[in-house]
Nucleic acid binder design. Structure first.
Lengths: 248, 248
DNA sequence: TTGTTTTCTGCGTTTTTTTGCAGAAATTCA
DNA sequence: TGAATTTCTGCAAAAAAACGCAGAAAACAA
């Protein structure tokens, strides 16, 4: 059995049973416990499982305890303030989830009258704090990690909406590889949003610029606006400007 | 049982019952009291519980939550614990929102495998903490006060589901007037849920027994089970028993 | 292909963690 | 006060993890 096979099998077992014992896996896969331990350590490093003495637990086990510190809040606020300028009264706005989007929700002007449509429960909460904003939640199966709804039902609902704007958060973006992500369901949702929105806006902290993930969402050309915390004339952003993307 | 599992179990027990005895836990988990003590000490060090002679107490006990109505929370926990008994593996469960429902979500056993369908965003969050529970969010316009989705889209989605159970929280209930509420949209959603569920369960603190609101949801006869914090043979509940409602 | 480099895996040894136990000390309660 | 219960302390055994190493396997380059 190849290493990658083994890793996939272990991850599957963890997600299936919420816990695994090193000793048990070692017997099942017929490799030494040392190897299992190294595998578990690797998966834990990638954040896919939680390694504990004697085995490992599923991530969802103590999710509540997971560090909630929002990374790079200041940068995200900078991004959010730029993004807000694109939203005008009467617009229909589609948004994904993620902390950057949550930040956007917080800095919306109080007198803005618009309709926000989202698959993200945390974002919906934030939008609900604004008296003049109408919030539409897209329903479907709830993805526990990201707290967004995913699935065919959600996608067909999204496609029925003609949105003026679409804000995509939490991305890996690269001029050549385009927009990418690492969660199958999330990719489907984002694709649906892009296909139905008049203007696609990507919010990304500079750290994620020029990075790629496994799953492709769309080409760089399909993005209309890219917002980072960097100044628009920053050198790092020029490849994207060349692709015809507006930089804010 | 892994140590981390044990810690999670203990923490769950503490939050559930607000107190635990070392001796009791030792017997339940089948480890020595010494081990329990060390576990409790560890959890206390992390600030998750309060260690006392003979066992431990919940954090929320000592942290002086004067603003919150601790009394009602206790009642709601009592109700939730009764309600949990109705849920079995493989069931499809519809729920509304409200604090009693949220409490129900918190006391669900970790190994329960069921599908919860809800219009309530806070409830969805709580369900999402349970690894074995599938959460379906019903989408539509978000009602800002109650953080539940309402509207025709939501209602037609609800009606497409054949649920085994339906839990209704936050009610005014009266033997003659039946179940009533004061929010038009919420009433529509509850009606839809009642019409599609095999068994309708009303969760209500005794304070709301024998009270009525302006808008009627359904007659008392349509309710299958009524759960309050009172003992089932309480005098206050007899009129409902006469209507054919099972009292828990 | 062949040779080189890198990665992977298992094994023996050492170190750490976990757990239960016994006896002393502390706490509780009547 | 005094008896029962609980906690603390050190200790020992068992289990798991970490470490270094060497051979095997895989990837890479010429």
């Amino acid at each position: 059995m190849l290493k990658e096979e083994r890793l996939a099998y272990i991850l599957h077992q963890v997600n299936l049973h919420n816990k695994v014992l090193s000793s048990h896996l070692s017997e099942q896969i017929q490799v030494s416990e040392d190897t299992i331990r190294r595998d578990l350590a690797e998966l834990a490093l990638e954040g896919k499982i939680i390694k504990v003495h004697g085995g490992a637990l599923s991530n969802s086990f103590h999710q509540g305890i997971a560090s909630q510190d929002v990374y790079a809040v200041e940068d995200k606020k900078t991004i959010a303030l730029k993004a807000v300028q694109l939203i005008h009264d009467g617009m229909f706005v589609l948004t994904t989830g993620g902390t950057t989007i949550a930040e956007l929700a917080r800095v919306l002007p109080r007198d803005l009258q618009a309709t926000f449509i989202t698959v993200s429960l945390p974002a919906a909460f934030e939008y609900a704090n604004h008296p003049n904003i109408e919030v539409i939640v897209i329903g479907d199966k709830l993805s526990k990690g990201s707290k967004i709804t995913v699935g065919g039902e959600a996608i067909s609902k999204i496609k029925m909406i003609k949105a003026d704007l679409c804000f995509l958060g939490n991305n890996a973006i690269d001029a050549e590889d385009g927009l990418t992500d690492n969660d199958w369901d999330v990719v489907q949702v984002k694709r649906a949003m892009i296909s139905t929105a008049k203007k696609v806006v990507v919010l990304s902290i500079s750290e994620k610029i020029d990075t790629s993930e496994q799953l492709k969402i769309c080409d760089a050309e399909e993005i209309d606006v890219l917002i980072t915390e960097l100044p628009p004339d920053s050198k790092k952003l020029q490849p994207y400007k060349k692709k015809g993307i507006q930089i804010l």
